[in-house]
Amino acid sequence: MDQSSILDFRSGTFFAPILVLYNNDLEKIEQRLQEKIASAPDFFSSSPVLFDLSELNENDKKIDVEALISLLRRLSLFPVGIRGGDPSQEKRALELSVPVDSGRSRNDAILPEIQRKDDTMPEVQPVIREAVRAPAMMITQPVRSGQRIYAASDLVILAQVSAGAEIMAEGNIHVYNTLRGRALAGVQGDTAARFFCLDLQAELVSIAGIYKTSEDLKETPKKKPVQVYLRDQALIIEELS
């Protein structure tokens, strides 16, 4: 019955440089790329890269996706996505096992625009941080004794959490009701994670592994909204006014 030990899908964040192309001349691209790589070989060696064709396509400059992909691979880069391609380019990329990043294609050309005009920018500038945690997990039913909930994101609970239940989140936890069970926020070590609750009667609260048990929580106000956060390796429990 229990198949949880075989695999898990977790949301995660993944960093990759985005290669924005303004010229469809493959020779010039290769030359410029080699210069870039030579300037920071450690950074670019075996690096995943997502290439963005939206500038080219806006100016009606077509590029051979197959040739581009093999060029990147020859320079020991790993193309992991295409963005801003036309349908035939996207199709060709998929055939070569390069997935299409469709979500935010085509209309985020503003950032590369600024970077192109400033040649003094450091080499690592094209790395755009796409830190997006998975959308918050929402629970509307009571979490009963013996139940465990794990969110690879923020966790929002609208019902009560009973004594003997355990709720865990990699991000923040919000309980818009009474908490009587155990609550662990920032379980992957996020010390900035916080915990919010309308009535704290918990058996245990923890942020990034630093915890207090109900024995230590006697002093906290009951039936009052509180937040819990970390300051200098100590859990601070504070009434929300």
């Binding site: 039913q141 009571p142 009963r144 013996g146 139940q147 009973s162 004594a163 003997g164």
Partner: peptide, 24 residues
């Protein structure tokens, strides 16, 4: 009361209605 709470959790997660995503 605590045992009942535990049982309520099982009703909400392990019953046929829960497994088939029917009305609880």
């Amino acid at each position: 009361v605590r045992d009942s709470d535990r049982m309520l959790g099982i009703l909400a997660s392990k019953s046929r209605r829960a497994e088939l995503n029917m009305e609880p």
